[in-house]
Design a protein around this nucleic acid. Sequence first.
DNA 1: AGATATAGCACTAGATCGGTGCTGATTGGA
DNA 2: TCCAATCAGCACCGATCTAGTGCTATATCT
Lengths: 163, 163
Amino acid sequence: MLQLTKRTEYALIALTVLAGREGEVVSVREIGELYPVPRRLLAEVLKELSRAGILASQRGSNGGYFLTRPAAEINVAQVVGALEGLPAIAGCSSEDFEPGACEVEPVCPIRSPIQRLRIGVWAVFERMSLRDLAEPARPPLSRAVPVGSGASDGSSSGSGSEA
Amino acid sequence: MLQLTKRTEYALIALTVLAGREGEVVSVREIGELYPVPRRLLAEVLKELSRAGILASQRGSNGGYFLTRPAAEINVAQVVGALEGLPAIAGCSSEDFEPGACEVEPVCPIRSPIQRLRIGVWAVFERMSLRDLAEPARPPLSRAVPVGSGASDGSSSGSGSEA
DNA sequence: AGATATAGCACTAGATCGGTGCTGATTGGA
DNA sequence: TCCAATCAGCACCGATCTAGTGCTATATCT
Ligand code: SF4
Ligand code: SF4
């Protein structure tokens, strides 16, 4: 399934708040009051982000979390990477992939292309920073791009989806 | 989890073969002899692709599957879309998402950004055709690109995650 | 008729995910 | 001093999804 986990979504929501209040210390409760998110789970997620070094925490009363770096320097890729491990696309490019786990590997014809996809997807996530998240979205949306080899003429490729 | 299913991987492997033998009719057995893939499962997947209109089938002896269109006109996005539904990134942008399923939706601050990500990821998949898959990979790799608004290009952003 | 191949569908076991429980440690303040 | 608020750590459960298989029917070629 090519979809982020709820944990990651909650993380991004929380980070949106954090990014809009840089320098402040924000508690899980506050965020929970802003958005109808399972607080307990949100807390768990923020702990993870803290362990990953994206957030730092302040314990005790008046405690909470805050960004360790400017919002513009933290991108979605880092967040996703911290919570789900970097996007693998295929099993063999996952972090915890043990050699031999895939029978096809020695002769797999799609490893290289998959790798290219992975890099492309990763780049998409890298290009969106927390500041982009927090801001009301300014979409110059300068035409997508990359990854393919030749593919130059892909113009005709409709979305097609299914059915 | 940001990862393709095994089904999709097998589909791509099979399509690589099909793309390299355009005009021919190739059976599941043949593909299974080329790559150590669970044939039974592979068969199931090709059926799905057939239902989705990406492949057509020929039954009976000497039967098998063949592409309905030139390999260059079929891209990975179509394949993924047929097998997993288009990349949703978040639950609310999934095909079978029922309104009200997400509590946060009415006030969600990340819907718009997520949408942008979705488009970006989708574009990455669209730009890789079956021909790109089948070819021995020539990566001029035309530098990745946009999607975000500003986005500092801190290409250095490593995984940064755990371990 | 018989061998080969796809069509369709249901089913099981295992992995993953969403969410919660519980206990402890740290801090600020009444 | 003691209490309330808050983070830290970890284990646990139920629901969902995935990988893979079983079985039966249908079409085609020889
Ligand atoms: S080797 Fe090929 S089949 Fe095995 S996991 Fe990697 S991409 Fe998928
Ligand atoms: S609305 Fe926000 S939280 Fe709900 S699914 Fe969409 S992105 Fe995730």
